[in-house]
């Protein structure tokens, strides 16, 4: 019997990445929308709507990177040098935006630099994450289990396009989050922005879905061969219906559904990409089975995941529950 642990670990990592993109996605999105709002009071509200959560959200990124190291050290040792520049750029951007949360409050009234750090840090992090995604989908040159390409292999029209797509996607999530957490004029503004962003996001999803099979015969084979095609055709249909329901919910002033629906769009897009790629983890050569850590290492760490991840999810939900409802000007602690 082939070892199923690598596949289980692959699914765990996929879950960690999708949870990360939704959770940190909305708070990076709020960071980017910061640039569209000039009022100081509203900016405070926007920041306070994510401030209690961002630390926990970003931890999923550590689980993504750490999990890759834990479960697939070979993949980690190839992907990180290959994507050296976008990864470092993402980290630097995250530093600026992470410290901006506290620094901005403490620096008042001279905080305009930290406003910029928050805005451009969020934008830079989202952009580089999209580029990383694109670069991974298009594949990495590997010789003898080591990265053997150049420092700028990642830089292609496709990866940049994915970068832009993730920026739009995160901004959509951020706008829907603010629609959920704010009231009045700010909420209405976010509903308008969210509608436009939603249309943009849908366009990006469609174009990436067309581009990937054109770029890679392997992916085309997966989607358009029989019998796969029979049970895959609902995927675009569900995507379209979901997007339409978000649009309606935004028009009807609903608080929660636009956010959940957009998160659903993220999940279905991600499942599609994972289907295109798995069982490969470093396309086009390395599969989860080849990259897997030793069986006893994966076993030891998966036990921790299976016990602790549900607990983490429970207390994460608990903290979101504590800070439920609309954010008010008194929400800060400063």
């Amino acid at each position: 019997m082939p070892d199923t642990l690598p596949l289980i670990w692959g699914i765990v990592l996929a879950v960690a990445v999708i949870v990360y993109t939704i959770l940190d996605g909305f708070d990076l999105g709020v960071g980017m929308l910061f640039g569209l709002e000039k009022s100081e009071a509203n900016r405070d509200l926007m920041m306070n709507s994510v401030a209690p959560f961002w630390d926990g959200n970003e931890t999923w990124l550590v689980l993504g990177g750490g999990g890759l190291f834990v479960a697939f050290p070979l993949a980690y040792s190839i992907i990180m040098p290959a994507l050296y520049i976008p990864v470092i750029f993402m980290l630097l951007a995250l530093i600026f935006r992470g410290v901006a949360f506290e620094f901005r409050h403490v620096a008042k009234p001279n905080h305009h630099w930290w406003d910029k750090a928050f805005l451009f840090g969020s934008l830079g992090a989202a952009l580089s994450q999209g580029i990383i995604l694109g670069a991974l989908l298009q594949g990495i040159t590997v010789v003898d289990n080591r990265f053997a390409g150049g420092a700028f292999d990642w830089l292609t029209p496709f990866s940049l396009f994915c970068g832009a797509g993730v920026v739009v996607g995160y901004a959509t999530l951020g706008a829907c989050w603010l629609n959920l957490k704010t009231i009045g004029e700010l909420q209405q503004k976010m509903q308008r922005i969210a509608t436009w962003l939603l249309a943009g996001l849908l366009l990006f999803i469609a174009l990436v879905s067309l581009w990937t099979p054109l770029m890679s015969p392997r992916i085309a084979e997966k989607w358009f061969s029989l019998p796969n095609f029979y049970f895959l055709w609902p995927v675009p249909t569900i995507t379209g219906l979901l997007a339409f329901s978000v649009y309606l919910a935004l028009r009807k002033n609903k608080s929660l559904w636009p956010f959940l629906g957009t998160a659903g769009l993220f999940i279905i897009s991600f499942v599609g990409l994972a289907f295109s790629t798995l069982p490969l983890i470093v396309p086009p050569d390395i599969s989860v089975y080849q990259a897997a850590a030793a069986h006893e290492s994966q076993l030891f760490s998966i036990l921790g995941v299976l016990i602790l991840l549900p607990i983490i999810l429970i207390y994460t939900i608990f903290v979101y529950y504590i800070f439920r409802g609309k954010v008010t000007p008194e929400s800060g602690y400063h």
């Binding site: 190291f69 834990v70 050290p73 030793a294 290492s297 030891f300 760490s301």
Partner: peptide, 12 residues
């Protein structure tokens, strides 16, 4: 990675 990875994983 086989040896040190899980320790980092448990830290997270």
């Amino acid at each position: 990675g086989n040896v040190l990875g899980p320790l980092i994983g448990y830290e997270v």
